[in-house]
């Protein structure tokens, strides 16, 4: 099903949806969708061989603006859908695109289990550190003390660190990128999608309406690229954990951590030969006879 049929011209345009995009001018999501298209083109994945799953939120609208298969589900519930899709048709390239509230707030339970399950799909989190679609409430990744309509005296909780959690939880690919750097995003997405196993990319995304602190201008001088550091080994768990904790004046971008583990689907015996959706729905009489004998 993944056959890149030759007549596809693999440029980002191939993935242009017919919809008018409704994000605010200046929103980081524009850069993210462009980088997603770039990565798909680079990997030569035709629209019908990709399956996007999202939740609800500004960022989750992304599949609606793409030309590719997609399912825009419920707030916080993209990961189980993505994994069901993958088990049903493991040759599809499955990509979940969700906001930070979706991923780490309401969907946190699914996130933890996706990490340890290592299903072969990519999770791109449009992390703007606010609940944008519902007009600016604080999110799990909002900085402690964040003032919003529901936290007028500042958020009491400390912020959730998704990359630390992902490494600790057993993700086999953990990366961070930044909506102000289109090239870095596209390259990182491509690596994540090409990775065999569960891949998390946390994208520091500018929300020009509700996040006036973590802006492109705020990030720009702080971020630096691990990719440029020849000494950094993303297979070193301890080093990765150290980098994952870094925040503030220095924010590492790039692939923080990589590990190799068989994917969930690889280990499901019934999927050894044919994708489930292509398998016969009926059985030979002998199979049923064996069954009957076992119950008599």
């Amino acid at each position: 099903m993944t056959l890149p049929i030759p007549e596809f011209k693999f440029t980002p345009k191939l993935y242009d949806g017919e919809r008018q995009v409704t994000w605010c001018p200046g929103c980081g999501d524009y850069g993210i969708i462009a980088a997603v298209k770039q990565a798909l083109a680079q990997l030569q994945i035709p629209p019908h061989a990709a399956f996007f799953v999202s939740g609800i939120g500004c960022g989750s609208k992304l599949p609606d603006y793409l030309k590719a298969n997609g399912y825009l589900g419920l707030h916080g519930r993209s990961l189980p859908i993505a994994q069901g899709v993958k088990l049903a048709s493991h040759n599809l390239k499955v990509i979940a695109t969700v906001g930070d509230g979706d991923a780490y707030g309401i969907g946190a339970g699914h996130f933890i289990h996706a990490l340890r399950r290592n299903s072969d799909f990519t999770m791109i989190v449009e992390d703007n550190k606010v609940y944008a679609l519902t007009k600016g409430q604080y999110s799990p990744t909002s900085t402690r003390g964040w003032v919003s309509s529901t936290t007028p005296d500042g958020a009491i909780e400390i912020e959730f660190n998704p990359v630390v959690m992902a490494i600790a939880g057993g993700a086999t690919f953990v990366a961070r990128t930044f909506s102000g750097d289109p090239k870095h995003m596209a390259a990182t997405f491509a690596k994540a999608i090409a990775h065999k196993g569960f891949a998390l990319v946390d994208v520091l995304q500018a929300c020009v309406i509700y996040n006036h602190v973590n802006t492109v201008e705020w990030y720009r001088p702080r971020v630096y690229k691990l990719d440029d550091d020849a000494n950094y080994n993303p297979r070193d768990y301890t080093a990765a954990m150290q980098k994952a904790h870094e925040w503030g004046d220095h924010i590492p971008l790039g692939v923080l951590y990589v590990d190799e583990r068989p994917t969930y689907e690889e280990q499901v015996k019934s999927l050894a030969t044919t994708p489930l959706v292509k398998q016969a729905l009926t059985y030979r009489k002998e199979t049923w006879d064996e069954f009957r004998a076992a119950f008599m």
Binding site: F51, V53, Y71, G73, L74, R77, L79, P80, I81, A82, Q83, G84, V85, K86, L87, A88, S89, L92, G109, H110, I112, H113, V268, S270, L271, L276, V277, Q279, Y283, T287
Partner: peptide
């Protein structure tokens, strides 16, 4: 019968996995 059976993290995931598979045509 060559089935895929999955114990999920909770019932939310249980139905969502099934819907994901159903969307694909399983």
């Amino acid at each position: 019968f060559n089935l895929v059976t999955k114990q999920t993290e909770d019932e939310l995931a249980a139905i969502l996995f099934a819907i994901g598979a159903g969307q694909i045509g399983v």
